[in-house]
C-alpha cells in the first residue's frame, strides 16, 4: 500500500520452503509510522492511539495526526466527552432505532469505559499524555482546525503543532502511513 519492499515478502517465504535461495528477503522492520485519526468516536480514536503507543513500545518512531472529527480527541474540553457510536454501527448488535434513543450512547460508553478500566486501558486524555511521554509527536491538521474555527489554545498541552498536509508528508517521509 505505501512502501515498496514489504508487500511481497510474505508470499516468497511461503513458496520457497527449501533452503536453496540465498536471496530470500527477510522483511525489513518498520522504522516509522504516521497514524492519522480522522474520527471522533471512541471506537474511531482508540485503535490509532493503541497503534501509536505500540509502535513506540517496539522502538519505532511514531507520529499521530488528528484531522476532521478526530480533533475532538485532542480538544481540551471535548476529550472528556468522547462516546461510542450506537447508531449506524451493526457490530453494536442493537436495532438502530434503539441505538438512537437518548442516553444510549452514554450508556454504551459507560459500559465500555468500565471494561477498559478493568483491562487497564487508560482513558483517552491519560493515554495521550502517556503517548506524548513515549516521545511520539502529536499534531493537528491545519485545514480542519481552520474549518472548525479553533486555535492552539483549544487543544491539550501535549499538542506539538498545527501543520499543513505538506508538512505532514514531509514528516511521514520514509515511513508507513496509517489512516484510521
Amino acid at each position: 500500500m505505501s512502501d515498496t519492499s514489504t508487500g511481497t515478502t510474505g508470499t516468497t517465504s511461503t513458496t520457497s520452503t527449501t533452503s536453496t535461495v540465498a536471496s530470500v528477503a527477510t522483511p525489513q522492520p518498520i522504522e516509522k509510522v504516521s497514524i492519522i485519526i480522522s474520527k471522533g468516536s471512541l471506537e474511531g480514536i482508540y485503535p490509532g492511539l493503541i497503534m501509536a503507543n505500540g509502535a513506540r513500545a517496539e522502538g519505532m518512531a511514531a507520529n499521530l495526526f488528528f484531522t476532521f472529527f478526530g480533533l475532538d480527541a485532542i480538544h481540551a474540553k471535548r476529550i472528556e466527552h468522547i462516546k461510542v457510536a450506537t447508531v449506524g454501527n451493526p457490530a453494536m448488535h442493537i436495532p438502530t432505532l434503539l441505538g438512537g434513543l437518548p442516553g444510549m450512547s452514554a450508556l454504551a460508553t459507560h459500559m465500555m469505559a468500565k471494561k477498559m478500566d478493568d483491562l487497564d486501558i487508560p482513558p483517552i486524555a491519560e493515554f495521550l499524555e502517556m503517548i506524548a511521554d513515549t516521545g511520539a509527536g502529536i499534531y493537528a491538521c491545519k485545514a480542519s482546525v481552520d474549518m472548525f474555527g479553533l486555535d492552539k489554545d483549544d487543544f491539550i498541552p501535549q499538542l506539538d503543532d498545527i501543520i499543513t498536509v505538506g508538512e505532514f508528508y514531509e514528516m511521514a517521509a520514509g515511513g508507513q502511513i496509517i489512516f484510521t
Binding site: R56, A57, E58, G59, M130, D133, T134, G135
Partner: peptide
Amino acid sequence: SVKELYELFPKGP
C-alpha cells in the same frame, strides 16, 4: 516514569 523509561531504552523499554 514512562518518559524516563524511553530515555533509558529508546528502542522500547
